[in-house]
């Protein structure tokens, strides 16, 4: 299970790096932090998983969305 989660981590990280649409990248990052919370949970660290779920999934997604709304959607060349 750990190997599958780590492979999904790599896939989501590469996709978040390479996507030109910023909103798409934020969605990939949300799934990345979700999977890392599941990984911490699977490795018997529920307190770390709790913090990761609160900060990574909720707060950072909200912050990035709010900032993209102010800055603009497309990444300039």
């Amino acid at each position: 299970m750990t190997e599958i989660l780590l492979l999904l981590h790599i896939l989501m990280g590469i996709l978040a790096l390479l996507s030109r649409d910023l909103l798409k990248a934020v969605l990939f990052l949300a799934v990345l932090s979700l999977l890392s919370a599941l990984l911490f949970f699977h490795l018997h660290a529920p307190d770390v998983a709790l913090t990761e779920a609160a900060v990574g999934t909720g707060l950072s997604t909200f912050l990035y969305i709010w900032l993209i709304r102010k800055v603009g959607l497309k990444e300039d060349e």
Partner: peptide
């Protein structure tokens, strides 16, 4: 303790989706 992780995760994931829907 593991159920608390699930609860917090569900609440904050819903807030994240709500933020996307509200702003875009």
């Amino acid at each position: 303790v593991y159920l608390d992780v699930a609860l917090v995760y569900d609440i904050f994931g819903f807030i994240g989706v709500l933020a996307v829907v509200k702003y875009f």
